[in-house]
Nucleic acid binder design. Structure first.
Lengths: 148, 148
DNA sequence: GTAACTGCAAACCTTTTGCAGCTTG
DNA sequence: CAAGCTGCAAAAGGTTTGCAGTTAC
């Protein structure tokens, strides 16, 4: 179990067992997880942390900028992932729900256009691409173009 | 009160008072609304429809492709809007929560690139731009660049 | 007439909160 | 030691469901 002493201290957070465990799980997994998933993962490894603590912790991490929060359409649950401070988007498979990260972002130019055209002060954006991953394409084929 | 007899019939739905009312509200408003908002709006005009009926109805509309559903980050509530079958995105003001529609979409090209590069079969995408609208820019100024 | 729809109340599920006890710096 | 964390249990808030009665076709 790693210790994130300095990392937490820098944000005015105490370095506790739960926080280390939760940050670890998010780090290892490398993908967005729900609070429940984090909770279950910890339970499996007999390093149980109370579910409310998980919620409080990830929310705190979000507040301090250590973690990013996103709410997935469909099953409206919040998902949390380590903030690597890189700009990243996901391909979300509609079948297996896997989230595949893609580097790069085609939107910066567009944001500038919007600022000019609409006088809207852009601070960020969210961009998710839905479809079917390679694996699921083999299995399924009766999907149609949808509107998002 | 308009009647959407043919529209509903085409989707195998019965033409009922509640459905007309709900579709009407969404049409008039022209912007995404929560089930609650629809419910309240109807109550105000003494055309009360039960909240569960609102939920059942909008969800049905979504299923039939008449309405689009989106879940707003922050307060994770589902929002519903008429599906005009046009590709549209929103500027979401982080202060007043207003959603300003923008026509056009810079992403089609990018989707093609992804298909080639990742073998991912894209069926759609969701794109929301966060920031501050003209009005709120005047009031606030202490906002920082955030990660989404 | 029958299948579909609605209202009502209760259940559900994710997330939040109050409080008492325990840790960390 | 004081402030901050955690567990527990209970509440909150959005959404769903079972059922009995009503309505549309």
């Amino acid at each position: 179990m790693t210790s994130y002493k300095e990392l937490f201290a820098g944000k005015g957070l105490k370095n506790t067992k739960s926080r280390n465990l939760i940050y670890d799980i998010l780090n290892e997994t490398g993908l967005p997880m729900t609070a429940e998933q984090i909770f279950v993962r910890l339970k499996e490894t007999n390093k149980s942390v109370n579910l409310s603590t998980v919620y409080r912790t990830v929310e705190l991490f979000v507040e301090k900028g250590l973690v990013l929060k996103a709410i997935m359409a469909e099953d409206n649950k919040a998902m949390f992932e380590i903030n690597h401070h890189e700009h990243k988007h996901y391909l979300v498979c509609l079948n297996c729900k896997e989230m595949i990260p893609v580097a790069g972002c085609p939107l910066d130019e567009y944001e500038k256009v919007l600022i000019d055209r609409m006088g809207f002060d852009v601070t960020g954006h969210k961009f998710e691409i839905y479809g079917y991953c390679k694996n699921c394409q083999k299995l399924n084929s009766e999907h149609k173009k949808e509107d998002f």
